[in-house]
């Protein structure tokens, strides 16, 4: 029941974030979506995810506010309004059609398949020594995944430095 309320709140906040004119208000609204997602993770019994989402959300908000502060510009919607809206709605309709086809194949809510993870659950503590199974999965069973994540992070940092760096003047 709490999940329904949270999800409806998230959808409302997302619509506000997309539609509001002021850019700073838009960023604050997307922050509301992120913190509601953090609560939803907590209700769905994923405490590690809730902590990570909280930290990441705060960082994301700081970066977004840095980008938008003092740069508020009025939005003008002009020309081809009908074409743009209808093509967007067409894309969303195609997406919903395919997702409806896919949802029929998925297991119902609350009854996961657990085919792969049963082995992890039974042998997790004895093989890795970690009490928290999520940590056991990301740091031991699927450690290469985490290595790839670190690679992506460093690549992103290199990209950001290359974009934002100002070339120094030669003396």
């Amino acid at each position: 029941m709490e999940l329904y309320i949270l999800l409806i709140f998230m959808i409302c906040a997302a619509i506000v974030a997309i539609e509001v004119k002021d850019l700073l208000s838009s960023v604050i609204a997307v922050g509301a979506v992120g913190f509601a997602l953090c609560l939803a993770f907590l209700i769905l019994k994923a405490p590690d995810l809730a902590i990570t989402q909280l930290v990441v959300e705060i960082l994301c908000l700081i970066i977004l506010i840095r980008a938008t502060i003092n740069k508020d510009l009025p939005l003008v919607i002009e020309g081809r309004w009908i074409f743009n809206t209808f093509s967007t709605l067409g894309f969303i309709a195609v997406f919903l059609l395919f997702s409806w086809l896919a949802l029929k194949e998925l297991p119902g809510f609350g009854e996961p398949i657990m085919a792969v993870v049963k082995k992890y659950l039974q042998e997790g503590v004895s093989k890795t020594g970690s009490v928290n199974i999520v940590t056991a999965v990301i740091l031991d069973f699927r450690a290469y995944d985490t290595l790839g994540e670190a690679t992506v992070l460093f690549t992103a940092v290199i990209g950001i430095m290359a974009i934002l760096r100002r070339p120094g003047r030669k003396k």
Binding site: Y120, V137, V152, A156
Partner: peptide, 23 residues
């Protein structure tokens, strides 16, 4: 328990999402 495998993969995905947003 709830399924820990999606949680572990989403944990990776959240951090990568931060990197993508910053870029």
């Amino acid at each position: 328990m709830v399924d820990p495998l999606p949680q572990a993969l989403v944990l990776t995905s959240i951090v990568i999402g931060l990197a993508v947003t910053a870029l």
